[in-house]
Design a protein around this nucleic acid. Sequence first.
DNA 1: ACAAAACCTACCCAATTGGGTAGGTTTTTG
DNA 2: CAAAAACCTACCCAATTGGGTAGGTTTTGT
Lengths: 207, 207
Amino acid sequence: MKHKVVIVEDNIPLSEAFAEVIDFTNDFEVVAIYDNCEDAIKNLRKDCAKLFLMDIELPGINGVEGTKQIKKVFPKANIIMVTVYENSEVVFDALCAGASGYLTKNLKPEELVDALKVSISGGAPMSIKIAKMVVSSFQKKPSKIELSKREKEVLVLLSEGNSYDSIAEKLFISKNTIKFHLKNIYIKLQVNSNIEAVQKANKENLI
Amino acid sequence: MKHKVVIVEDNIPLSEAFAEVIDFTNDFEVVAIYDNCEDAIKNLRKDCAKLFLMDIELPGINGVEGTKQIKKVFPKANIIMVTVYENSEVVFDALCAGASGYLTKNLKPEELVDALKVSISGGAPMSIKIAKMVVSSFQKKPSKIELSKREKEVLVLLSEGNSYDSIAEKLFISKNTIKFHLKNIYIKLQVNSNIEAVQKANKENLI
DNA sequence: ACAAAACCTACCCAATTGGGTAGGTTTTTG
DNA sequence: CAAAAACCTACCCAATTGGGTAGGTTTTGT
């Protein structure tokens, strides 16, 4: 039994080329080709495919939105984005939407097939550049802002929802001292409210 | 000119096997093998390698900590973790520390060489399972908590550090209404302060 | 058309927070 | 050692926030 693949791509020659490559394999077969997400979503249950090759730039519903909708119906669908976009925002949007892989259109036939194999076996096919982007997104650069140990403690407790009183109790110091530290924290972070301080500390990886 | 590789691995037979594979290639050569991070860090400038194969479980400084220190001296070092650990915490710790790739020890010789090639060309070599984990980490599951459109607007503005007054101005409604919405938000999120609300909303991907 | 939900406003009071000054001790560092 | 930095406390006052009640309009769904 071959794995069913649906292609959603408005560049017809390209989708036909993909289909030809896929149908040539022993393990995969293309059950439908759509040039828009709407039709793909309409026929989801009929096609009953586990694998999707999804373009991003599509007329009507775009690929990211389409991915969300397909995943809502079939959470286990493997949706591989195949697009020309390589800028970080689109990539992360697609991954957040539930894409299980991300390839760029300049891929070779065997790469396409490899990606399908990787995907069906629970992996996440990615082009080299995308993999790098994804990994890089974890590498938080340290902030240049320096908080003292005590200031960090206060900020952490504050971020957990403690009131000044509660922080004071937990650190065994007076509420006035908490205020004193926060005042200094606000200056260092250049903010003027507790919420901003917590947000900024999070963004700067200070806590 | 071959690319210099340093191996940090306390399983000597394994590190020697790696070295043998690497030295057999035309593009890479092992310039040093260490069974601990301390020595590797000490000889950083002498070895002057661009590539590191780093074990995680090491006596003394562990691989994650070692990675941080090496990246501090050589931010451009390509450090590939090669370990048996596959649990998410360790993987993400390693990536955050600056690892540019993550492989598991059951890898084949050609996979090792491929990883080096990928890494040197700016990519991020990962085993299939790790790639999947990394991609999955982006897929935020939607919260079951439902906020109205207005409540989200208020919460977003609050999270940006606006005071009630400021939020009221921006939404063209009265401060009292802001308080009203926040009261409801606090109930829905089961919190009782603005900071907690913002934190929880972030955690639940509500804003 | 009706009910439910969402949205809006106002008022009150208690509690918390922000910002300031003024001073003290302890720890770190040149 | 002396200076600097971090840490601590207290007090004051203005402003903001939390929590409550009581009512209104608009939008949504059945």
